[in-house]
């Protein structure tokens, strides 16, 4: 049996977690799920459709909102009672965090961001992302139970034909006050998590070559094309633009129809965030810049003169 930690936010199922469920189903063993906290049962309703037979819901009146260590403790307790061959979750911030707790509590290795998994009896072959997916590792995990997260979008969530609704089974994990010490106590607006950026169809992105005062035309072009402005880390660490606009390994990952890289050299850590763009246009004074081997089209020139000309041409084309 494979146990999948399924995340939810105050009762709303985390869609990404379904990818981990489908990854587990593909391994050919029965799949059970574990959800934690208030309203978890309502989030569990759809899991049967994806092949989950039993959804275990950790209930405790103190579990009002997300509490990572308590979730880890609940999952670890189920590992003890159910002896699954593997425990999976999706490699979201929460999925990785909860499984890290499970690994620490059970003193088992935890393999994050896996792109393939195969089950053995005392060891497991996995493939996982390193360097934000710029390098792939083949590794063997030595453990009696595999604890692994699936890289987001490495697996597709797929309903299982002819499946029955999952049985929901409540349990009360033994939680200490220490397990509950870390939990969400409030939520505020202004996350600015680059939500607009992550979903934008067009991203006009600027690097060091744009300069501190050069972002005006990028904003204009993004506005004309209904897109968003992005930037490199050099730009955010100089304080020219807010971090929410940073694209890359430690910034936002984007997958637009069009990515325009202005004055960006194309470091692997930047590419990690934009390599899924359908079309990339680079504007750079240096024809040898690394970005040239990722871009589809290039304009060799100074962004401060090239971009205003593009803005004018797009505006003319629209009117």
């Amino acid at each position: 049996m494979i146990l999948v930690y399924v995340d939810h936010d105050r009762g709303t199922l985390d869609e990404l977690s379904l990818q981990a469920v489908s990854a587990a189903v593909a391994l050919g063993q029965p799949v059970e799920a574990v959800l934690v906290g208030a309203d978890a049962a309502s989030a569990a309703a759809r899991l049967g459709e994806f092949g989950v037979t039993t959804a275990h819901v950790a209930a405790d009146p103190r579990l009002t909102d997300y509490a990572p260590q308590a979730a880890g403790r609940a999952v670890a307790e189920l590992v003890g009672t159910l002896s699954p061959s593997a425990v999976l979750a999706v490699g979201s911030p929460r999925g990785n965090e909860v499984l890290a707790h499970v690994g620490a509590i059970l003193d088992l290795p935890f393999a994050a961001d896996c792109t393939s998994i195969s089950l053995g009896s005392s060891s497991f072959d996995i493939t996982r992302n390193r360097w934000a997916g710029n390098v792939i590792e083949n590794a063997v995990v030595h453990a009696p139970t595999l604890i692994a997260s699936t890289a987001p979008h490495a697996f597709t969530a797929e309903p299982v034909a002819g499946s029955a609704p999952a049985t929901v089974q409540e349990f009360t994990p033994a939680l200490t006050d220490a397990d509950l010490a870390v939990r969400i106590i409030d939520r505020t607006g202004g996350g600015g998590g680059g939500v607009g950026l992550a979903e934008a169809k067009v991203v006009v992105s600027g690097g060091r070559g744009v300069g501190e005062s050069g972002f005006g035309p990028l904003e204009e072009l993004a506005g004309l094309l209904g897109g968003a402005v992005g930037c490199s880390r050099v730009v955010t660490s100089a304080g020219w633009r807010p971090h929410a606009e940073q694209v890359g390994q430690t910034g936002t990952k984007v997958a637009p129809d069009l990515y325009i890289a202005c004055g960006i050299s194309g470091a692997t850590q930047h590419i990690a965030g934009c390599k899924n763009a359908k079309t990339m246009i680079a504007i750079n004074t240096d024809p040898e810049a690394t970005i040239m081997s990722y871009a589809d089209y290039a304009i060799i020139g100074d962004v401060s003169t090239v971009l205003p000309a593009i803005v004018d041409a797009v505006r003319a084309a629209k009117s």
Binding site: L108, V135, H142, A298
Partner: peptide, 29 residues
């Protein structure tokens, strides 16, 4: 090591060269 590295690989990617569509502002059209 309980997670033992066997090998690394680089993900398949189109190793390409961008098509240069112009130099300077003349590329706008």
């Amino acid at each position: 090591q309980r997670i033992e590295k066997k090998s690394l690989a680089l993900p398949p990617q189109e190793v390409g060269t961008a098509e240069v569509i112009g130099t300077g502002p003349d590329a706008a059209p």
